[in-house]
Design a protein around this nucleic acid. Structure first.
Lengths: 197, 197
DNA sequence: TTTGCTTCTTAACAAATGTTAATGCGTGAG
DNA sequence: CTCACGCATTAACATTTGTTAAGAAGCAAA
């Protein structure tokens, strides 16, 4: 059976059948239960995770014990703490599974070898990295520019699928607001749409 | 005269004298006046900028015409729109000079050639990139976790030097709050410090 | 079923932040 | 010098968001 990851590498990175065969020997596919951790604060991140099936998230916990979701990773997304992996520093984030998932583990050695051996994999990795940066910038820009309601509407437009899979309090956490506030915002939106429609 | 950039490359990237000589032929050092633009919304970003002296910033402008500062770049910092440069897409950001500055222009061709020819430059570039990502994550985490006052205090701790060089409304813009709110926050902090001290 | 747990909602109230407007202060241009 | 301009402050008020508390709905385990 061809994995999403294989499809992705071949389609986006120009990796050949043969190259993938070489690569895939270093890959581990693991099943991850709901709420199972792939990374905890204080650990050094030793893998990048590619989500074959399911849904992961990364988040931090502040001094008051509140969770703040940094990223969601549904099918065909990467998630990791690149900084921790690159700088060999303890991570400040958790990564766990929101849904039962299938995850490909790419450890640091694997990534290093693959980028050195397969130029198209290096390209792909660079592409991912820049795409990632683009997302981070957009996120920051939204956080400093838009109101909570506006941020929610943007989220709905960007990730309509996630909206249906993720508990609402996690969306609130991602947006940087209290879950009760999101409830209220949704109520207001519903009222307005009802009036105007 | 040895530029900061040269010092940086030699110290951090292990670039040799000889390599730098080769490199430097493709480099342009330019003087940039206060308020002069290096990038505008809609343009494709064709350079990375290294600040030899002075202070640059990048920012966006929203539908209501308000500026939102994404990054400050004082001496020895890079600033660019990597996404625009990498994906060849129109930028959504402006870059201009807060102070009269000296800036090294590294155009995309230069960076491509240098990374291909000089392995240590590639390493350096990767290092910069990962460091950049680390900053972006930290920024996002702060924006979704902390109050305006807390964000201000973090800014003061992280960039005490910038605080003295940048008009206060720009700090507010960077923090994602109104300048009047920052004024109020500073007043409250001063009251509290006065009482407790 | 019953129980307990989590999520979501709602309301009343508190706190934080935005808006508007007026004022003062410096500083550079004329 | 004087004027105009940009920046900072302050206050009153409006709006947004957080907090607390209570209850309802769904759902899974006992």
């Amino acid at each position: 059976m061809i994995s999403n990851f294989e499809k992705y590498l071949k389609a986006n990175a120009g990796v050949t059948d043969e190259q993938f065969k070489t690569l895939s020997e270093g890959l581990k596919l693991r099943s991850v239960k709901q709420n199972e951790f792939l990374l905890r604060t204080g650990e050094i991140c030793r893998n990048a995770f590619f989500v074959e099936r399911g849904l992961l998230r990364s988040y931090s916990i502040d001094k008051n014990g509140k969770e703040h979701i940094v990223q969601f990773a549904p099918e065909n997304w990467f998630i990791s703490d690149r900084s921790s992996a690159y700088f060999n520093e303890p991570s400040e984030y958790f990564i766990d599974a929101i849904e039962e998932s299938s995850v490909i583990f790419l450890d640091n050695d694997f990534i290093r070898d693959a980028t050195e051996m397969i130029p198209s994999f290096r390209k792909y990795n660079e592409y991912i990295l820049h795409n990632h940066i683009r997302h981070l910038y957009k996120r920051i820009n939204i956080l400093i520019s838009d109101s909570a309601e506006s941020r929610y509407l943007i989220f709905v437009r960007m990730y309509p699928d996630l909206l249906l899979r993720v508990p609402q309090w996690m969306v609130a956490s991602y947006l940087g607001i209290a879950p009760e506030s999101l409830s209220r915002i949704r109520l207001e939106l519903a009222k307005r749409n009802f009036k105007s429609g």
